[in-house]
Design a protein around this nucleic acid. Structure first.
Lengths: 164, 164
DNA sequence: TATTGTTATACTCTATAACTATA
DNA sequence: TATAGTTATAGAGTATAACAATA
C-alpha cells in the first residue's frame, strides 16, 4: 500500500489516492488491450476522428512517433486498427479502427463507466455531481496554467549521479 | 500536451488533467532532491517517525527494498539522511533525517503548499474547501475498495508479444 | 531541404535472484 | 530456518539517432 496519511487534508495526497484508484481500475479494464491505456487512446482517436495520420496521432496523444510505430504494429496484429495509405501523401498512413476495434471500444467504454461508478460509490449522487463539476472547472483552468511560476526555483543541485 | 477533450465530463479525464498538473508542479519542486518524489517521501518519514528501519520505510511507502538501498545511498551522499545502527538488532539500520534534511523538508513543504495554491487558483475559496473535502472523503473510501469487482473481466488475450 | 514512418541503439526504472550478516 | 540489507543481472519502457521514401 502506498498509504501513510501524512497530511490528510493535503490536496496532492487525496488527489493521488483517488487518481491511483482510478488508474488501477482502468488498468484492469485495459489489461487485454495491446498497449493498455495508450492502445485505448489510439483506438478512441482512430474511431472518432477522420482517420488521423500517425504524426497527428502522436502529437495529439503525446506519444512519440517511434513508440507509436511499435504500438500500431501490435494493434494491427490484433486486428483493432489498420494502416491505410493516404491518397494525398504517399509518405503518410491513415489509421482507421476495424470493425473489431469499434466493437472492443464499445465494451471498454462501458466497462470504464462501471469502473468510474465504482470509484465514486463512496459519495452520494449529489456530491458526485459536485465533485465532477469542480474537477472539470479545475481541469479547464489547469490546461492554461502551465507557466508554474518557478521563479523561486533552483536550490542547489543535490542530485549525485550513480557511480554505477 | 496530452490534451484531447474526449468526453469532457469524464471523471478519469478531469482527474487525470488535474493530477498531472499537480504532479508537474510538484516534480518541479522536487527537481533537486535525490530520488524526486520518493526522496521527499522518505525524508518526510525519516523526519516524522521515530527513525524507521529500511524495511519499515519500504513497506510504508511501497518502495522495494532493493530500490530503497540505492535511494538511501544517494540521499546519504547528499547529507539529507543518515543510516544509524539499530541498538536492538544489528541487522537493521534506522534512518534519521540530518539537520540539512530537516531544513530541506521545510523548504519543500512550503514550496509544495505554494504549488497546491497555484493549482487551486482557478476556484474560489469556498469551492476549494468543498473539493478538498470531497476528495478526502473519496480517498478515505478508495483505500478500502481495492477489490474492484473484476468479475466480468477477461475478454480474450489480444496482446501479442513483440517478436523483437 | 523538410517530413513521414521505420529501425537500431542506448539509457533509465523496476523486478528478480543471489549473497552477507545477523537473528 | 527466517529476516535486514546489499549487490548483480535481466527485463520493460522510453528516448536518441540514423535511415528510406516522399514532398
Amino acid at each position: 500500500m502506498v498509504a501513510m496519511a501524512a497530511l490528510d487534508g493535503d490536496l496532492g495526497w487525496t488527489l493521488g489516492v483517488v487518481f491511483r484508484a482510478y488508474v488501477k481500475a482502468s488498468t484492469a479494464v485495459m489489461a487485454d488491450v495491446p498497449g493498455g491505456h495508450r492502445g485505448y487512446q489510439v483506438l478512441t482517436a482512430a474511431a472518432r476522428e477522420e482517420a488521423p495520420s500517425q504524426s497527428a496521432l502522436g502529437a495529439q496523444l503525446g506519444i512519440d512517433r517511434t513508440v507509436l510505430t511499435y504500438l500500431l504494429d501490435d494493434m494491427e496484429r490484433a486486428d483493432l486498427v489498420a494502416r491505410k495509405p493516404d491518397p494525398a501523401d504517399r509518405r503518410a498512413r491513415r489509421i482507421v479502427a476495424t470493425e473489431a476495434g469499434h466493437a472492443l471500444l464499445c465494451t471498454l467504454e462501458e466497462r470504464l463507466a462501471r469502473a468510474e461508478a465504482h470509484i465514486l460509490a463512496g459519495l452520494p449522487a449529489k456530491d458526485r455531481r459536485t465533485l465532477k463539476s469542480l474537477l472539470s472547472r479545475l481541469a479547464a483552468h489547469a490546461n492554461a496554467l502551465d507557466p508554474v511560476d518557478s521563479t523561486c526555483a533552483v536550490v542547489e543541485d543535490l542530485t549525485t549521479p550513480h557511480p554505477t
